[in-house]
Design a protein around this nucleic acid. Structure first.
Lengths: 188, 188
DNA sequence: TAGTTTATTGAATTTAAATTCAATATTTTT
DNA sequence: AAAAATATTGAATTTAAATTCAATAAACTA
């Protein structure tokens, strides 16, 4: 393995550790030294990889923004199955791929509050609300979704999912609910 | 007005200002000096009223815990109307009584993460999840609510409401959804 | 292998924000 | 109105955590 790859891998370990801690305890509650000792490495070394704590966060949020963009591609599958399959996958990943799960929670937190302004801007610019609003509009035309402003329904749906995911992030006992329960928000 | 009353009023002004800022920007993003100048008063004076920033937060969370306790009393109204009326009132208050609204959001944030541990403990001990789980069980017996672990449904419901409220706290455009949309999570 | 570059550490420094404090103004009490 | 108590300010101090740095070790290059 080349040195460059080594470095890349180490960087990634830091990112994943930070993501995990940010989501579990919150950005400000997580000290650089907490991240470092969890990786593990010395506090000083972490600055060899990232210029600052905020830079580390921003990189994570940018990764999340990039990943969110890919959600839009799913927009061409039928409205009736989009949400069902999206949530199933998301909840499924929560066990197998903590990364996806954590990223989802982090992005939601960044969009709201309790993080540096910069992170918020990036997260807001990458929100999938418009994309799903379109799918909801389609579903309304098909007559399967309830009436109402699609964007409002979309925001409402994602806020709901966000609430559930955050609960899962901090409450180990809480098992993912049946996706049907949440989709009921949209269905007629 | 006596001096004692004056002081009480001032204390309250600080509490309400802090609550508002904590909810809008987050606990750590809010500086003591931000609270002081919003009240308005000097930074130093704020310490004449509260021993520390954390003490101020804890007092708010305790107030919230006390208020939450009163929710339990509603448990004897029919399951079918409990959630409907609770949400209507909550959303109604979000305009007229920002206090109730903000407190709700703060308690949820405290229960999860991004705040000092102490706040979390208090908030967790005052959660209404058990109370509503009972109401849900009743509703299930009546045959109006869907099947599933009542506690899970209850947690799910509150996580949902929490998600919506947090969205409202930071996103001015977002209008409260029709309570029916959220109650659909519980209904058969 | 000698020399160069990169990784690593932990202690020293900086920084931003909380907290204290001495000085002054205001209100209450006698 | 003088004395005592309380409120208020803003600057000085403390503190906790981020960040830098000098020194050392390890890995790579020639």
């Amino acid at each position: 393995m080349t040195r460059k790859e080594q470095k890349e891998e180490r960087r990634n370990a830091i990112l994943m550790t930070a993501l995990d801690l940010f989501v579990k305890r919150g950005y400000y509650e997580t000290k650089i030294s907490d991240i470092a000792s969890a990786v593990p490495m010395s506090t000083g070394l972490l600055f060899h990889y990232f210029g600052s704590k905020e830079e580390l966060l921003i990189e994570l949020v940018k990764m999340g923004a990039a990943a969110t963009g890919s959600t839009g591609k799913m927009a061409d599958i039928p409205a009736s199955v989009f949400f069902e399959s999206f949530l199933s996958q998301l909840f499924e990943y929560s066990k197998a791929q903590p990364w996806v799960f954590n990223m989802f929670v982090l992005m939601g937190q960044a969009r709201r509050s309790g993080m540096p302004e910069e992170a918020r801007k990036i997260a807001l610019s990458a929100s999938g609300i418009e994309d799903t609003a379109k799918i909801i509009k389609k579903g309304q035309k098909e007559g399967i979704f309830r009436k109402g402003d699609p964007k409002l329904l979309s925001t409402c749906f994602w806020a709901t999912v966000q609430g559930i995911m955050e609960e899962m992030a901090v409450n180990k006992e809480f098992k993912a609910p049946d996706p049907e329960w949440l989709i009921a928000i949209l269905l007629k």
